[in-house]
Nucleic acid binder design. Structure first.
Length: 493
RNA sequence: GGCGUCGUGGCCGAGUGGCUUAGGCACAGGUCUGCAAAACCUGCUACAGCGGUUCGAUUCCGCUCGACGCCUCCA
């Protein structure tokens, strides 16, 4: 019996705009695809938020016992900078600026991306395919779309015929757009394009002589269009139709809309049952933007080396902060918000550190099973991590009350509380007990215990000057003493 | 301009047609303490505005205002 059999998940499906009961195509298995980063610069913090949401979703699905194949791609082929036939993509441009090979840019920022996700305790996806590693699959896909009459070749480039497609299919169903509205609102670009209609998008672009990233194809040397890789790779690894496709809200149109169109045009099937979109991250109430300087990258946030925040924030605090809001809400990154989260996170970890020290009783005064169910109910409801965290703070209160002797738990219930806390805090939310790892050395504990003992003696002798000196000087180096009914404990901040 | 998401108390953030109307942070009072801190207890009640539906709306509908996203590179 797996947990997923007793936990019915509801997912907000962007395609329908409703919460729907999640039913995987193959029982016990979940296929999930998330659009990964384009590796031409340091990963965007907003991008990190999106991936963190899906990391948590991945973790929860695994926790429920699903066998999850989680595919998150690396876009290393370069997206076209615009629709004009200038033919220089982001990666080539960066390579020229930095005087290095395009694949060197790709390598550098892929490493940077992985480093940051590691620091933030992400689970690696099951497969992390690259666009450049799937050129053949993309060419095959284009051939299918041409064969089915939904694409046309002009001057070595291939375009998707949106108008033709819309005669038999519904282009715009994900982003709730009508083709006629798009026609009215698309700005014409100086007639440089070979496209039949401005709404058409490139499947294959002819490479100009100076274009370095290029591959041979039936239509001459070129490179794939910027929606194609996801269709090719998701189909290859997850099948023609799979369970969950995620990404940032900003990818809904045109990127995901085009993925649907490509899949339907090539295979005749809609690719995804549940579309999920994570909302935007703002900085101090404004969108992040390099041009206005309202931006902060993950390394700067982690190091404190920036002019937006008063201090550095640890990976777990950043995770905790993000988990305190729903993935579907706009989240505003602020110093005050992070500070508040840091305090809450510390309180939660203190409680977890108390768990092994609690006494058990013959009876329980708290219904731990009910509480545990509430944790699952929260996550089952469209991965509502803020509600889950509210429940974790309920448990924090229980733990403190048990410690004070105001509530009791049997050994069995305490075990249940421990297991559930550990599962949700560490496995599902992906937090780490940072205080424990930094303070957990036996030598430090021994040394502080000596000081605690000295302070006790000073207090017994009413030498409060000495006892306060020990307490205050320890506080200065980040060790906080806590006097309780049965002795003094400490925590490292 | 079009389409989409949203607007909750000092701040951050869930949720709901009425019932006990999350949680965190901050603040105030209390218990504990040599004094503190920590912990515990108590207090602080909101849903942008205007209409409508309803016995009743913060929750549903419409409009207005505002924010953000997409429509054009941007996660």
């Amino acid at each position: 019996m797996q947990l997923y059999q007793s936990n019915q998940i509801k997912i907000h499906n962007s395609l329908t705009g409703k919460k729907e009961v999640f039913k995987p195509i193959n029982e016990g298995h979940v296929g999930m695809y998330v659009c990964g980063p384009t590796v031409y610069s340091n990963v965007h913090l907003g991008n990190v938020r999106t991936f963190m949401s899906f990391d948590m979703i991945f973790r929860y699905l695994k926790h429920l016992g699903y066998k999850v194949r989680y595919v998150r791609n690396i876009t290393d082929a370069g997206h076209l900078e615009n629709d004009a036939d200038v033919g220089e993509d982001k990666i080539t441009k960066k390579a020229r600026l930095e005087q290095i090979e395009p694949m060197e840019v790709v390598q550098r920022y892929t490493v940077d991306f992985h480093n940051i996700l590691n620091t933030l305790n992400f689970l690696p996806p099951s497969i992390e395919p690259t666009a450049t590693g799937h050129i053949i699959e993309q060419i095959e896909l284009i051939n299918k779309i041409i064969d089915n009459g939904f694409a046309y070749e002009i001057n070595g480039s291939v375009y998707f015929d949106v108008h033709k497609f819309n005669e038999t299919n519904d282009y715009g169903k994900l982003s709730k757009r009508k083709l006629e509205d798009l026609i009215h609102n698309t700005r014409a670009l100086d007639g440089q394009s070979d496209k039949k209609n401005p709404q058409d998008f490139a499947l294959w672009k002819k490479a100009e002589p100076q274009h370095i990233m290029r591959w041979p194809s039936p239509w001459g040397d070129g490179f794939p269009g910027w929606h194609l890789e996801c269709t090719a790779m998701s189909t290859k690894y997850l099948g023609e139709t799979f369970d969950i496709h995620g990404g940032g809200m900003d990818l809904k149109f045109p990127h995901h809309e085009c993925e649907i169109a490509q899949n339907e045009a090539a295979i005749g099937k809609s690719p995804v049952n549940y579309w999920m979109h994570a909302n935007m991250l703002e900085l101090n109430g404004q969108r992040m933007s390099k041009t206005t300087g309202n931006t902060i990258n993950p390394n700067e946030l982690l190091s404190g080396n920036n002019d937006k925040m008063s201090k550095a924030y640890s990976p777990s605090v950043i995770r905790f902060f993000m988990a305190q809001s729903s993935y579907r809400s706009v989240l505003d990154l602020t110093d005050d918000g992070l500070k508040a989260s840091e305090k809450g996170y510390n309180r939660l970890m203190e409680a977890i550190n108390l768990l092994p020290k609690l006494n058990t009783s013959k009876t329980s005064s708290i219904k731990i099973k009910d509480w545990k169910q509430k944790c699952y109910d929260a996550m089952n409801d469209d991965f509502n991590s803020p509600i889950l965290i509210a429940q974790l703070f309920e448990a924090t209160k229980y733990i403190n009350q048990i410690k004070e002797g105001k509530e009791t738990l049997t050994a069995e219930d305490l075990g249940l509380l421990k297991d559930t806390m550990n599962a949700f805090v560490f496995d599902v939310l992906g937090l780490r007990n940072e205080a424990e790892t930094s303070s957990g050395t036996d030598k430090l504990t021994g040394a502080v215990d000596v000081l605690i003992k000295l302070r006790q003696e000073a207090r017994a002798n009413k030498d409060f000057a000495m006892s306060d000196k020990i307490r205050d000087e320890l506080a200065e180096v980040g060790i906080q003493l806590k006097d309780g009914k049965d002795g003094t404990t400490f925590s490292v901040n």
